[in-house]
Design a protein around this nucleic acid. Sequence first.
RNA 1: GACCCCGUCGUCUAGUGGUCUAGGACUCCGCCCUUUCACGGCGGCAACACGGGUUCGAGUCCCGUCGGGGUCGCCA
Length: 479
Amino acid sequence: MSSVKVRIAPSPTGYLHVGTARAALFNYLFARHNGGKFVVRIEDTDTRRSKPELIEPILDALRWLKLDWDEEIVYQSRRSELYGRYVDEFVKTGRAYYCFCTPEELVAEREQARAEKRNPAYSRKCLSLSEDEVQARLKAGEKAAIRVRIPEGETSYDDIVSGHLTKQNTELEDFIVARSDGSATYNFAVVVDDHEMGISHVLRGNDHITNTFKQVHIYNAFGWTPPVFGHVPLILRPDKRKVSKRLGDKDVGEYRNEGILPGAMVNYLSLLGWSPKSDREIYTLEELVGLFDETHINASNAIFDEEKLLAFNKTHIQMMTDHDLAVLAAPLLVEAGLTTKYWLETRWEYLRAVVSLFKDRLTRVSEIVERSGYFFAFDYTYDEKAETKSFPPEAADLLTDLAGRFAALTSFTVESAEQALTALAEEREIKKAKLIHPARLAVSGMPVGPGLYEMLVTLSQPVVVERMKKAAAYIRNKQ
RNA sequence: GACCCCGUCGUCUAGUGGUCUAGGACUCCGCCCUUUCACGGCGGCAACACGGGUUCGAGUCCCGUCGGGGUCGCCA
């Protein structure tokens, strides 16, 4: 495939949602797989609705996903002159015409059409205006939008995903290509840009299929060769509606804040509407680049299943090295007030050991905050429910005894700690559980957590001894 | 409503006429491992929307029905 160039064209009217992220991913994978270019174009032709302050968050989300782009970012808002030239040419050559209908009139027409169960297509009222009248009204300062004149016939193109698609031109209607303020609308600007930028393939959501016919018509009218189109299936909510910010669907940034790994998001998204045709599901971005094949894009819409995203996240966390996980966990722990940046930096090995204990137990990286507090401070309270079960009166004596034995160990290791505990249980003829549960609660305040002995060793001998003695005193005090 | 797209377990999917008593993953349920919670291992529940064709043979091809989604803006 020669000179592949694709683009992701987000509109800064909202944050990056999963649908756009997935489209970006497919375009990125397609470009990288074929040694082509992946560029970003900001579609902000609608000055009223576009919010410049949303551009950076969108780019940030793209960077976070590691979908790095080539070349300079193109802003449609800075290319109005270019569109204007083509619009003029369109009008001059008779492929478009002035329309003096006001938005209010058009809305009224549409409403009436719907009420009468007719199709709400434009009436073409202004198409029959005489050249003289048009010029006179323009000269008088009347505002006019510009509409394409759709000829009779049909428009068709070959879609990578859905095959040969055809639409009768009567279904297209004379859509507006330039607003009455002279600015080009989406369907026109997109064609000019994709053509000027040398875009070879357009992979986008199938909610654009209707637009594609309109755009293909413009390409044809200009005598340009359209890019190859591929309409990927939509990502739906569990209620089967298109994902939408309005309905409260999370954007990529929110998933990021919730502790989702970019690799997990990319991996999960890659399998929504595409398949490597393999039983394997876990891949890195690099592996996906190697595997991506646009002919394997599905045609049917997919429901976004957060449960499965979470499962992927869990797996991707397990795939990380202790060091990398520690890098992610550190700022979260500091932010939560559990420790300080300086403290962690001077005790990196400790952090790494702690993180390692939790690696197989985290669904989200952020969970480490609420689960590992006792590794950084001895200010926790004992879990109430666990206390009634694990801190019976006799536990005080047992903890004191166990603390003494731990203190006496010359080498505090997983093996020696377990041996000491086992020995005590045997001597007292009690189940090990009678020691394990109180010990866990004493040193962590929690009924659940990492393996007891690993946890003890990581906390260190003096800390463990101190905490067990404190717990013993606490139990006696309760009596 | 019109037009367009789509239709395999609850969800994501494999399946390109016979190897399908339909495979994998998530979820859920058992068992093992572990005297915690997980990880891991093993096993289980669960689907070809329906009806006609075509064919020796259809999840796979064709048509229809039904169902779902999308679009119908001087938004993108």
